[in-house]
Design a binder for these strands. Sequence first.
DNA 1: ATTTTAATTTACGTTTACGTAAAAGTCAAG
DNA 2: CTTGACTTTTACGTAAACGTAAATTAAAAT
Lengths: 127, 127
Amino acid sequence: MYYTISQLAEQFDISTRTIRYYEERGLISPIRTESGQRLYTKKDRAVLKLILRGKRFGFSLEEIHEMISLFDNDRTGRKQLEKTIAYGEQKLKEVTERIEDLMQLKQEMESILADFRERLQKMEGTK
Amino acid sequence: MYYTISQLAEQFDISTRTIRYYEERGLISPIRTESGQRLYTKKDRAVLKLILRGKRFGFSLEEIHEMISLFDNDRTGRKQLEKTIAYGEQKLKEVTERIEDLMQLKQEMESILADFRERLQKMEGTK
DNA sequence: ATTTTAATTTACGTTTACGTAAAAGTCAAG
DNA sequence: CTTGACTTTTACGTAAACGTAAATTAAAAT
């Protein structure tokens, strides 16, 4: 039902310190046993996964924090909901731009590689 | 013909310190005037652009350094060329994975946004 | 020619994202 | 019940990527 901190650490191959640090920064909020030990739910696990993915994209923990609040805050008021949608659209745009940017990089890398392979071909011919 | 450091800094909206730091780390190598001032060519500018793009993708300066050496090192020997190609293929794979990862994130964000928009619709109905 | 603006090196400071160690309490196994 | 593995908080340490300030020199503008 619940995960301990070291179980999660092992699953994601990160340190317990890292997980506690994310908590310090307000990114994750496990419940506690009466004795004070942290217990993580499936949802907490999902949040952690989100954090790590965000990191791979080069987002700062601060940015990730904002993005997470998109998910779990119950945006009840209409105004709040509108603001959330606007923010989400903005982030979506950023992600889309990043994808395009990355695809361009991929193209460039492919053409450079093609060039190198060609050169190698010619060398094989001579030697 | 040449750019000064502050021209580049302005063009890319970064500090001159940042550019000098990249030089410290061996990522960029401008020529100098007799008095010691840095002069940047178009190629230097292109490298700087590459660096900044790499950063947006969350690559460290160290990784970017390696990737840059792909471009400007004249890999003359066959062995060298093979190594370079292998490294390039590896990096290309990483980039491809990142793109896929990002596209998945995009999908998730879109579905969350769709959900929010739906909620908003229902609220407009009642109020 | 002299201000003003820009550049250089040197060097210490700062933030982010953790690592690491210590001291103390807790849980699980034998 | 004790040993050992795990967890907690507190706190200092660290690497990366710059920021910032000082002292000096050079270039551009008036």
